[in-house]
Each structure stands twice: as structure tokens, then as C-alpha cells.
């Protein structure tokens, strides 16, 4: 990453965020411009959706299994158990996302606290 080394960290982050925002807004503006002229049920858009889903699923699996940053301080079995608990509560509560998230995050906090205790 030659560019990253030439810049201070906050400036580099600002640069990445700006580019990310421009790319994001580009899709929206293009959507306004093309509205009424393209078929969103086409195979191209189905492929686009598949790529986005796969990329995010890959990122999330990686964030849970191989995190960088603060989550790396939590033990791997704890992170995996907390994710499983979130899924279990989600299905037990008739697919309530809020309760699932709260249970998963709460479980990770409790398990990490327990490990610090013993």
C-alpha cells in the first residue's frame, strides 16, 4: 500500500471514506438517471445482488472468526458461541432480529466478563 505510507493515518482514512462515499452516491445518482429505462428484474442485477451478498457474508464470517481490532481480544469459542446463541434466539423468537442481536452481543459480553473473572 504505497499510498497509505505517504499519508498520515487520519488523512488516509478520510481519503478512503471520501472515495467510498463517491462510489456509493454514484450508484444512487445513476439509479435516478436510469429510472424507467432499465429492467431491475434482469439477470445482470441478480448477479450484482449475488456478488454483494457473497462479499458481505464473507466479510461478516471473517469479522466473527478472524477479527482485527477489539474483537480479536475476545476468545474465538466465545465469538462463535455468541453467534450461535444469536441465531438460536432469532429462530426461537419467530425471527426477531432485535432480540437475536441483543442476545448475541449480551452473550459475548457475559462470556468475556466470565473469562476475566476466572
Amino acid at each position: 500500500m504505497p499510498e497509505a505510507e505517504a499519508m498520515s493515518a487520519p488523512l488516509w482514512a478520510l481519503m478512503l471514506m471520501t472515495v467510498g462515499a463517491l462510489v456509493t452516491y454514484f450508484w444512487r445518482a445513476l439509479g435516478v438517471a436510469l429510472s424507467g429505462r432499465i429492467d431491475t428484474a434482469s439477470r445482470l442485477f441478480e448477479w450484482v445482488a449475488c456478488v454483494a451478498y457473497a462479499l458481505l457474508a464473507g466479510l461478516i464470517a471473517r469479522m466473527i472468526l478472524l477479527p482485527n481490532g477489539p474483537l480479536a481480544e475476545a476468545a474465538s469459542p466465545d465469538r462463535i458461541a455468541a453467534a450461535v446463541i444469536a441465531l438460536a434466539i432469532f429462530f426461537l423468537t419467530r425471527r426477531n432480529i432485535g432480540l437475536g442481536v441483543a442476545a448475541g452481543a449480551g452473550a459475548l459480553v457475559l462470556m468475556s466478563w466470565g473469562r476475566g473473572f476466572f
Binding site: M1, M15, L34, V48, A52, N68
Partner: peptide, 29 residues
């Protein structure tokens, strides 16, 4: 950013992640 990725990788990953905003905008307009 935390992984130290290049500008190109970040732009491409965000473009792929957010490309779904195009059909969403087209359907909403």
C-alpha cells in the same frame, strides 16, 4: 482501512457492496 488495503481495493469493494443501491433507486423513483 484497518487491514491497510489499497485505494483501488476499497473503491472496488464498496462499489460491489453498494451496487444494489442502483436497482433500489430505479425501483423507488
Amino acid at each position: 482501512y484497518s487491514l491497510g488495503s489499497s485505494l483501488f481495493v476499497v473503491a472496488a469493494a464498496v462499489a460491489m457492496t453498494n451496487a444494489r443501491l442502483l436497482p433500489m433507486t430505479v425501483t423507488l423513483m
